[in-house]
Amino acid sequence: MERVTGAVRQAGGVVRTAALRARGYSRRSIEGAVSSGLLTRPRNGWVADPTADPYLVAAARAGVVLTCHTEARRLGLWVLRDDTVHVAAPPHHHVGELRNGTHVHWARPIVPRHPDALVDPIENVLALVASCLPHEEALAVWESALRHELVLRESLERMPLPTAARSLLAECSSYSDSGLETFVPVRLRFLRLPIRQQIWLAGHAVDFLIGDRLVLQVDGGHHVGAQRRSDIAHDARLKLLGYHVIRVDFAQVVSAWPEVHDMIVRAVAQGLHRAA
């Protein structure tokens, strides 16, 4: 029984019994592990390690796969919201018990789903994100996936993407370090000024250079302590070189964008983006 429980953990913690049988484990050893409490049975035909990811166990119980921003977050992609669990199932598929508020996507997948899968392939995840999330948030997830090299742009370009997904792909940049940096170019497009990302100035990369001289830095949660002191020193060097620096943080970009917008447009109105 220890061998079969080890195989379940190696397979991710939740697995079809048919997959275990195909690997040579007997029905008797599987049933013995369940009877002794070494494995649980989320649904007929599935077994799980008691310490398995609850999301995977719930997906097996309901006969669905994790997808959209739920799976994007599990993959470590930049996701702003974490409100509702999103799953997918084939059209007309009978879905088992789901947690209240779970959103089911019934759209046909771009990449076929294996019957043993409990998570959607990244291409399906991105396609559903494109149609489900607001534009800025969806773009942030897509750019994060490309930046982490979970999928290649060239591969996506060859796939039959829905219109919303293909539009996002065309807009994606490879320069944003976070979703916050994705939001900024979209929101400042109306200025019709060059906005360059990750430009090397005075020994360090800056998040955005607007025009020739206006620098916008967007701080994440790690900008504290030594990092904060380094940021202040870099800002001082930039100012001595004739740049104007606006530094904002996560909360300002997400929840107080009008304040950031006002600072930028007033700096532009004063010509602080132009070289002397």
Rank of each mutant, 00 (worst) to 15 (best):
L241P: 00
R213M: 13
S255F: 06
I122S: 04
R113D: 12
A7I: 11
P185Y: 09
I195R: 01
V65I: 15
G45H: 10
L209D: 04
R3S: 13
L193K: 01
H86G: 06
S174V: 14
E123P: 06
H273Q: 07
S131D: 13
A58H: 08
A117N: 09
L38A: 08
Y243M: 02
L20M: 08
V14H: 03
V186P: 00
G221H: 04
L216C: 00
T67M: 04
G45P: 11
A138C: 01
L209V: 12
H234D: 12
L169E: 02
R23G: 02
E71Y: 02
V79G: 06
L168S: 08
I210T: 06
H69P: 04
A52L: 11
V268K: 08
W46N: 09
H222T: 13
L240C: 00
A145K: 00
P185V: 15
R61K: 15
G45F: 09
A48I: 04
V265R: 11
D82A: 02
D219C: 03
A18R: 02
A19M: 08
V129N: 03
A59T: 14
R74W: 04
P50G: 08
S176F: 08
D49G: 07
G211P: 02
H261N: 00
V218E: 01
L139Y: 05
D212H: 15
L209K: 02
R187V: 09
Y243A: 05
S144Q: 12
S173I: 00
V268R: 15
G13A: 11
L38S: 11
G211F: 08
S255W: 11
R189Q: 15
H93L: 04
A72K: 09
V186C: 11
T5R: 07
F250Y: 13
C172A: 15
G179S: 08
D82I: 00
E2W: 02
R9S: 11
G37M: 12
R23W: 03
R266W: 02
A60C: 14
L139F: 02
V260K: 04
R27Q: 14
A117M: 03
R158F: 00
D262S: 12
V265W: 04
L150Y: 07
L216N: 00
A130C: 05
A130P: 01
A58W: 00
L128Q: 09
V268W: 09
A140R: 06
V87F: 14
W106E: 03
A58R: 12
L77S: 08
H273F: 05
V85Q: 10
L216H: 01
T40I: 14
L56T: 10
W78H: 12
